[in-house]
Computed example of a mutant assay.
Amino acid sequence: MLGKVLQLIKRSDIVAEVLDAREPSLTRSKKIENFAIKNNKKVLLILNKGDLVPLWVLKAWKQYFESNEDIKTIYISSTHHLGTKVLRDAMKALLKGQKGIVLFVGYPKTGKSSIINALKGKHSAFTSAHPLEYGYTKTIQLFKIDNKIYAWDTPGVIPPDGDELEKIIRGYNVDRLEDPVKPALLLIERILKFTSAAILKQIYKTEFSDPYDLLVKIATKRGWINKTDKEPNVEMAAKAIIRDFHEGKITYYTLPPSLNRDDKSSSV
């Protein structure tokens, strides 16, 4: 899968990397960015799910990426169709008035498909189909965003990599986890590192003393009880927590390295 993404990068002018605005650092793929830059492609960072974090946080990340790494950055919310014009204008600026092809890349669950669908509005139109590679039976299509901008009608899915926590944040399929409890506990710990426990208590409408206790309380509250030992099914609760994170039901935010924060004032 990654090989096909790299192949498409070579056939594009802009690589638009979609990030989760809650976790911009952990949803970046420096491997993809470095490959794009090495092949003389322009990189655009898109902070998606911007509705889940405060505006000042989005601005802080934008300033950080543009000032410290010289990478054009915008923030949008594809689910609320906010920022589509900003995205179009950013692509035009990077192309400097020339024609070009854009490839949207990113880890699963970052919202690439939603962005592509938003761009496929009444102003877009399909062009001819292209074979992905010699001997590859499937084809992909370019769609026309405007008179000079085209995009591949396929999200460049980056396979989730990294440690257990990073894989979860990067959209690893929860149903493929042999043991969802450990990564769920790591995710809860990360959330609590950046926000108040009150947020999770409000979302799940229960009190809890630690991450594992939260899983027990969720399972109990929802009637997920093992038939054999009559104990709460914490595996089901763990999967629920991870899915809720992927679906944007859990709101918190991280800050760029340029900003230090010692307090837990990041509740949204």
Score class of each variant (00 low, 15 high):
Leu82Pro: 01
Glu69Cys: 02
Glu69Ser: 10
Ala60Cys: 00
Leu55Gly: 00
Leu95Asn: 07
Ser77Pro: 02
Thr79Val: 12
Gln63His: 10
Lys96Gln: 11
Val102Thr: 11
Leu58Arg: 04
Gly106Ala: 10
Leu58Trp: 01
Met91Val: 11
Leu55Pro: 00
Ser114Gly: 13
Ile116Tyr: 03
Glu69Phe: 12
Thr84Lys: 13
Leu119His: 01
Thr110Met: 12
Lys99Phe: 07
Ser78Asp: 01
Leu95Pro: 10
Ile71Tyr: 10
Glu66Met: 14
Lys59His: 03
Gly106Ser: 12
Ile101Phe: 02
Ala90Gln: 09
Leu55Lys: 13
Ser67Thr: 14
Ile101Lys: 14
Leu87Lys: 07
Leu103Arg: 09
Leu82His: 13
Gly111Met: 09
Arg88Phe: 07
Thr110Ser: 09
Leu58Glu: 00
Lys120Leu: 05
Gly111Asn: 06
Ser67Phe: 01
Gly97Met: 05
Ile74Lys: 02
Ser113His: 03
Lys96Ala: 12
Gly83Arg: 08
Met91Arg: 07
Ile71Gln: 04
Gln63Asp: 14
Asn68Val: 08
Ala93Val: 06
Gln63Thr: 05
Lys99Ile: 07
Lys62Arg: 15
Val86Cys: 00
Lys59Pro: 00
Tyr107Leu: 13
Ile71Asp: 03
Leu94Lys: 06
Lys72Ala: 13
Gln63Val: 00
Lys62Ile: 14
Gly100Met: 06
Gln98Leu: 05
Phe104Lys: 02
Tyr107Ser: 10
Thr73Val: 11
Val86Ser: 14
Leu95Asp: 04
Met91Asp: 01
Leu87Met: 15
Ile101Gly: 00
Gly100Leu: 07
Ile71Ser: 02
His80Tyr: 12
Lys92Asp: 14
